[in-house]
Structure formats: structure tokens, C-alpha cells
Design a protein around this nucleic acid. Sequence first.
DNA 1: TTCATAGCAGACCGTTTAGTCTGTTTCAAG
DNA 2: CTTGAAACAGACTAAACGGTCTGCTATGAA
Lengths: 204, 204
Amino acid sequence: MPRDGTATRSRILDAAEGLVLEQGFAGTSVDDVIASSGTTKGGFFHHFATKQELARALVERYVAADMELLDDLFARAEQLSSDPLQQLLIFVGLQEELATELASSNPGCLYASFMYEQDLVDETTRELIADAVRAWRTRTREKLAEVSERYPPRVPIDLDALADQGLAVYEGTFVLSRALSEPELLRGQLRHFRTYLELLFSPA
Amino acid sequence: MPRDGTATRSRILDAAEGLVLEQGFAGTSVDDVIASSGTTKGGFFHHFATKQELARALVERYVAADMELLDDLFARAEQLSSDPLQQLLIFVGLQEELATELASSNPGCLYASFMYEQDLVDETTRELIADAVRAWRTRTREKLAEVSERYPPRVPIDLDALADQGLAVYEGTFVLSRALSEPELLRGQLRHFRTYLELLFSPA
DNA sequence: TTCATAGCAGACCGTTTAGTCTGTTTCAAG
DNA sequence: CTTGAAACAGACTAAACGGTCTGCTATGAA
């Protein structure tokens, strides 16, 4: 086999991810990606037959990293406590730690980028994102089931909707952060989510 | 004066708003807008000198409607009760009502559309959105000040961050709704926000 | 009735876009 | 040391894009 091309491929994906988060997918031309990644037309289309395929690869990589993070956070939380409520609170708490670290750069999520250009996204890419969102929902929902069994909530609540809130906090805060140019909002929003869980399930 | 053109202008804005919410701004061509609004190149560029100006007009109209909604909701809430906590809870409750009605179509927000194409948005348009977001924050924040004075929160919280949560719930839920093709999520998320406020401020 | 002007129609133009094609370089297997 | 295929480079193209321009039409003021 000839020389290795995976490094170039990664550089293209890195550049594209950054550009898409700043300008959207339709707003990012292939030439933009080429210039930003330091490659050429030939190089780009050697790795990605079409721009749509770049989108798919971009989302695939992003989803994979996201799923790894989700697994890692839950694994660490479950290691740090055996109580389901504590596990859930630690799960959110760990995210607050991460939010503090990553508050420097412009916040955003590829899911939102592509969901606000729905019509331009092919079905398989859509489904990749949908599966990722469902994974957050399902994992959180399962933990909530354990929690609410041991600690009946103080008021009747919709556990399914509550499970969605974890991700919704991210997506919503990203939009506000961008609009206000205040990249550090995420931590405070996650903190409120944790407080809500505490109030809901802590025995009076 | 010749015949009235405001109707055509509105039709263009209506068509453009729908298209931008589905495909993003960069993903929506002027020809798309023309076709969807049933006008022509001449007609379009008579009302908007450039595509950027369309963006500005789009955001201007959207912000105006949003500010009107914000005022209306607070006014109704303050009319329905004299207690600040009840006013805040009614404020959210009214939004739940609206969410139920509007659950039919594909949910989304122009603020998010443009914030995920930041680099393509000129500064004045950016500032329009920022002002709107700040209006939600400020109005909610003022009410929260009243509330927390009369009903000290059960746990120490960041009132500024809490004020942002009202809008963040919308933006976050829209992304999830789109990803999962479940347009009815908003009501449940708003409901949780209301429950959180209740738990925080209701006297034990 | 005229006529000035806003409202609109649609052909047209230069640029940008995604994608192609031909060629050159690298490297490992034979 | 050859050779063949993968990894690029970069000129090129057809279509789509934002925007211009010329002209027609409707309407209210004089």
C-alpha cells in the first residue's frame, strides 16, 4: 500500500467541523474546507466522493465521540457511587466540570448545525443523529427509572420528558451563548439541572 | 402613490422564514424564495437590495413578534395574579398552552438558525438577536428578583442563570424535536421548568 | 387626461460552487 | 529495481448563485 492518508482525512474533518459550526454546512464551501485544511481539490475528493459524504463522515465521527463520552460519564458515575440518585447527580456534575474546561472556545453542537439545515441532510445522516439523541434519552431514562423507584419524586412528573432535558440543556444553552457571546453559560445551566434533580428526588 | 407593495413584501418574508427554518439561510437561495413566494427577481430585489437585507428584515420582524409575545405573556400573567411567584408560574403555564397549540408544525427558531451560521450574519442583525435574548433574560430576571425576595429559595441558586433557562428550554427542545421528529416535546419541557420553579420557591 | 413613480417582470451577467479529469508522487509488494 | 495502486496536486467545467438592467403596468396626484 502507498503512503497513509488517514492523517489528511482527519485534517479535512477537523477543518470542516470547525467551519460548519461557525457558518453552517451550506455556508461552508468545499474550497473553504480545502483552504482551511491545507489540501487541494484532488485530495479532498479522493477522501470524500461528494460534499454529502463529508457531512455523513463528519456526523459519524461526532456521534462516535459523543457516544464514547456518554458511556464514559455514566461508567465513571456508576463507579463513584452505588446509589442511583447519586450516580445521576455525579453524571451531571462531571459534565459541569467539563463545561468549565471547554468554556473558552465558541460553543456549539453539530447535531444542531445539521438539524437547522434539515432539508439538505440525507436520511442516513439524519438517522445517525436521531440515534445519538435517543441514546442520551434512553440511558438517562433507565437511570431515572432506578432513581424514581428508590426515591419517589415529590411531585408527579413525566420521566420521559425529564430524560430529554439532559441534552436539551446543552443545545439550548449553546444557542444563548452564541447570541450573547457568553461562552461560559453552560456550567450554570447544568448546575440548575442538577439542582432540579436533587429537589425532585431528595427525601423531604 | 402606485399600488401597495407591502403584501408582496410580507409574502416574501413569510416564504423566506419558512425556508430558512428548514434549510438554513445559506442553504436557501434567492431563487428558492422567489419560487416559494410566487414573485420574481425584479420583485424581490425591489423590496430587498441584497440577500443580507432580507436576513435583517426577517430577524427584525421575528424579534418584533417575539417581544410582543413576551410582553403579552407577562402582562396576562401579572393580570391573573398579584403574587410574583404565581405570576411567574402562570407566565410559564401560558407558554405550555401555546406549545400545545403549535405542536403541529416543525418546531424551530430563527435565532438558532442564524446563530448556527454566525459568520454569515452582519453585526447589526447579530445585535438584534442579542437584544431579544437579553430582553427575555432581563424580564425574567426582574420577576425572579421579586419572587426570591418574598419566597427565599430552598437552596442557594444562581438567579441570572435561572433567568436564561426560560429561553434555553425552547432552543434546546427545538433541536431535540427536529432530531427525533417529535414536534410535541416542548410542552413537557416547559412543564418541567415550571415544576422546578415551584420546587425552588414554594415554602416547605 | 396626463404622467410621474412605485411595483413588478424576466432576460442577462460575472462569480462561486460542487464535481471532473489528467497528471505526478509516494511506497510497498514482487 | 520495477511496477502498480493509493495519495495527492491543480487546471478545468457546467450549473447555480447573487445581483443588474431594461422595460412594462398599475395608480394616485395634478
